[in-house]
């Protein structure tokens, strides 16, 4: 048995911990730029993103309009930055909702098992069986389009995945001897869930959150593209792509710029998410 420990040590030793890599500076830098601009958009002297100047419509990028103007002559730079605000609010908040609800469901299922698990898994499966975009479309169509409703709809859609992550991790941790040890001292289920298991779930949940942000940003884009996302005139990346599609032949920048910004953001999030997942891998962090 001490030999298996030896083998573990060898495996650990042969996997050098992934260190800081210069290539990560690019995605991290981009994300920081997007976040900072989204937060400070009101104070950096941007033109009103909704102000129309029909004479100056579909202008290519120039010194006056750094990213050009759209179909209604609105400043693209301003709209991309204010759109980042929308995308980030939805992208950050919706998975938090999913993690809170799905995490609670998944933890209960993984910890209590038996009937609780059957019910939870059934609920998750039902939620997963609906085509997700159709569900979100129905949702916003009935409740009305607003930032809150879009976030709510996408948050509900992220519940099953979050619940699965929480359940799988809880199953793994709940069988560990330290959980048994907590029971032998008479700890309640609530105390075991919150004090023994939850701290071990936080790293994988955080990694999930990072990945979910990028998925939700794309989903929000798709909703807006279909005209059921954030209502006009509030800018969002998906809405901008939808608007720009009409003039793709004469002014391709109106669709391509928001698409490129979304692409870069999602890609950066995925890179950083992978890095975080590697860092929180218990076999590595145990070193």
């Amino acid at each position: 048995m001490s030999a298996s420990a030896a083998k573990g040590a060898v495996v650990a030793a042969t996997q050098p911990r992934r260190r800081w890599h210069w290539a990560l500076a690019l995605p991290l830098g981009w994300l920081m730029l997007v976040v900072v601009l989204a937060i400070t958009a009101d104070w950096i002297g941007l033109p009103d993103p909704s102000a129309q100047e029909l004479i100056l419509r579909r202008k290519p990028p120039s010194a006056e309009f750094l990213l050009g103007t759209d179909n209604l002559g609105r400043d693209m730079l301003s709209r991309v930055i204010y759109g980042a605000r929308t995308s980030l609010i939805v992208g950050i908040c919706a998975p938090i909702l999913g993690l809170l609800v799905g995490g609670a469901i998944g933890m209960s299922a993984g910890y209590f098992r038996g009937k609780v698990d059957m019910l939870a898994v059934g609920f998750i499966d039902i939620l997963l069986a609906f085509p997700s975009l159709v569900l979100a479309l129905t949702f916003t169509a009935y409740l009305g389009q607003s930032l809150f409703n879009v976030t709510l709809a996408l948050g509900i859609l992220s519940i099953p995945a979050a619940a699965r992550v929480a359940r799988a991790n809880t199953l793994a941790w709940a069988n560990r001897d330290f959980v048994l040890a907590a029971r032998t001292i008479g700890a309640s289920d609530w105390r075991i869930l919150t004090r023994e298991i939850l701290p071990n779930l936080l790293p994988p949940m955080f990694a999930f959150w990072l990945v979910a942000i990028s998925v939700i940003i794309v989903a929000e884009g798709a909703l807006s593209f279909l005209g059921l996302g954030i209502p006009a005139p509030q800018p969002s990346w998906g809405g901008m792509i939808a608007d720009g599609r009409e003039a793709l032949d004469v002014a391709p920048h109106t669709a391509l710029i928001p698409a490129a910004v979304m692409f870069a953001t999602v890609l950066s999030l995925n890179f950083v998410g992978d890095m975080v997942r590697n860092m929180v891998d218990p076999r590595r962090s145990a070193l």
């Binding site: 560990r176 001292i185 004090r195 701290p199």
Partner: peptide, 16 residues
């Protein structure tokens, strides 16, 4: 009634 386990590392919560 207390218990001591075989795998001492698994019997301690790594985050505490």
């Amino acid at each position: 009634l207390q218990m001591i386990f075989q795998d001492p590392i698994a019997s301690l919560n790594p985050r505490r």
